[in-house]
């Protein structure tokens, strides 16, 4: 187990390294620092001097990979690749193009993201499993057919419509909840209701349909027949036997996304003006702040790889048949 984990961690390092290199190439070789300076200063009325000055003040004036003017190790370390890219491995995200410290921004904005993402995940999981079990229990009936149809309808509606529609009908017309905003206290809970509800609704269609198939697959296995042959009631079979076995694929698939919850939900946060990492990323993309985008790509990849490793561990914990070696 331990050797397996060490091997997985060692396998993750080259992946992070390549991702880091890809983003570096994307932002520094495809677009030269001159282009970035042009973008930031505006296309018109830029003199070469002002570009030089901008590059100097943001640390973009070093060569890309190899600095022949420095000595010793500084030949590597005095380059853009080292300063901007390698330092990410130490979680030193540097400063955004506006001059703010990215690391402190991230640690500050992480909490509002989690305040939305965790309730959405838990409530969503509960709702999806309930619906999927209901459909699987009544398989082949009208309820099942209409339920699956309803899931397909939900899947076919863009999440933008759920957000806009929810904000309009529930918040503006009916005035049940505030339209948008965030306030970190107990009174601020009312701001969370609508985004969490919409986050759950947008996920219901696809997940329920998928969980239903997992439940149906379990229902056709031998142990279920044995349980029924013992004379157990159908509900008991469903809750005591099928649910526990179906939880294996469900739990392991949820574990992957748990670390990514930190990243927040992009459009949900932007629409509800929640100061989380999702809206931070969107602002960075819209403002073409490449420093922040690069940091978020690195962070996202890192969290995803953590998620993958956690999945392996989760497999061992929930399914005693699995041995890692």
């Amino acid at each position: 187990m331990l050797t397996y984990l060490i091997r997985r961690v060692l396998y993750a390092i080259p992946i992070l390294f390549v991702v880091n290199l890809i983003t570096f190439l994307l932002f520094f070789v495809v677009n030269t620092p001159d282009d970035i300076a042009h973008m930031q200063l505006g296309q018109k009325y830029v003199t070469p001097e002002s570009i030089m000055q901008w590059k100097q003040s943001h640390g973009y004036d070093a060569p890309l990979f190899w600095n022949s003017e420095s000595r010793g190790l500084a030949k590597f370390s005095d380059t853009l690749y080292f300063q901007k890219s390698i330092k990410l491995f130490g979680f030193d995200f540097g400063r955004s193009l506006q001059g703010r410290d990215i690391s402190s921004d991230i640690s500050e904005r992480m909490w509002p993201s989690l305040a939305i993402a965790i309730p959405t995940l838990i409530i969503g999981l509960f709702v999806n499993i309930t619906f999927a079990m209901l459909l699987a229990f009544f398989r082949g009936t009208y309820l099942d057919n209409w339920g699956v149809g309803f899931c397909i309808v939900l899947m076919s509606i863009s999440s933008m419509f759920f957000i806009i529609g929810g904000q309009f009908f529930l918040a503006k017309v009916l005035k049940l909840v505030p339209i948008s905003g965030f306030y970190p206290s107990w009174e601020g809970m009312k701001f969370l209701i609508l985004p969490v509800a919409i986050g759950v609704v947008t996920g219901v269609g696809a997940s329920t349909r998928w969980y239903r198939i997992i439940f149906l697959e379990e229902m056709h296995k031998d142990y279920v027949r044995t349980a029924r042959a013992k004379g157990l009631s159908e509900t008991k079979v469903l809750f005591k036997h099928i649910l526990r076995n179906a939880m294996i694929p469900i739990v392991t698939n949820v574990v992957v996304i748990i670390p990514l919850l930190f990243m927040g939900s992009l459009i949900l946060e932007a629409f509800f003006a929640i100061p989380g990492l999702g809206s931070y990323t969107i602002d960075a993309i819209q403002g073409q702040d490449f420093e922040i985008v690069r940091s978020m790509v690195f962070l996202g990849t890192f969290l995803y790889i953590i998620g993958l490793i956690c999945t392996d561990i989760a497999y061992v914990i929930v399914d005693p048949r699995v041995r890692l070696g």
Partner: peptide, 21 residues
């Protein structure tokens, strides 16, 4: 392992700079 939306945005941003130039 790169978050999808971020990779797409990063590539499109890079592509836009090429087109602008």
């Amino acid at each position: 392992s790169i978050p999808g939306v971020l990779l797409i945005s990063a590539s499109v941003l890079a592509f836009q700079v090429i087109m602008a130039n």
